[in-house]
């Protein structure tokens, strides 16, 4: 359960910055079978949220068609300094968090 987030540490006020986030997860789609023919149960991340100082700036619903170790890239306007918080929620009670700071000047 390792997260990799990429946020520019500094940005000019009003600049559009790219945020990238990757979470290590098998994303078992629930359609594969073992050699013995048994269906492998689904185990995926279903939801990803990014907040800046508590306000949601991006959210995604994930389905089995998202690759293992789901990667997301999206944009936001640098309006204020603060903390980006990332949250991944999935099957079987999976919850993971990460955070990164940005300084807007």
């Amino acid at each position: 359960m390792a997260a990799l987030v990429n946020v520019p540490p500094k940005a000019k006020r009003g600049a559009v910055v790219e945020i990238k986030a990757l979470m290590s997860h098998i994303m078992e789609p629930g359609y594969r079978r073992t050699a013995a023919g048994e269906l492998i149960p689904r185990d995926i991340i279903t939801s990803f949220t990014c907040r800046l100082n508590g306000a949601e700036i991006f959210r995604a619903d994930l389905f089995p068609a998202i690759s293992a170790n789901p990667f997301m890239s999206f944009f936001t306007i640098a309006t204020e300094s603060g903390k980006f918080e990332f949250e991944w929620i999935g099957d079987n009670g999976f919850v993971a968090n990460a955070a990164a700071n940005i300084t807007v000047e």
């Binding site: 995604a60 089995p64 998202i66 997301m72 890239s73 999206f74 944009f75």
Partner: peptide
């Protein structure tokens, strides 16, 4: 606040 309507990911 996104500034740009663009998302990227990897799919199956």
């Amino acid at each position: 606040r996104a500034g740009r309507a663009q998302v990227a990911t990897r799919i199956r």
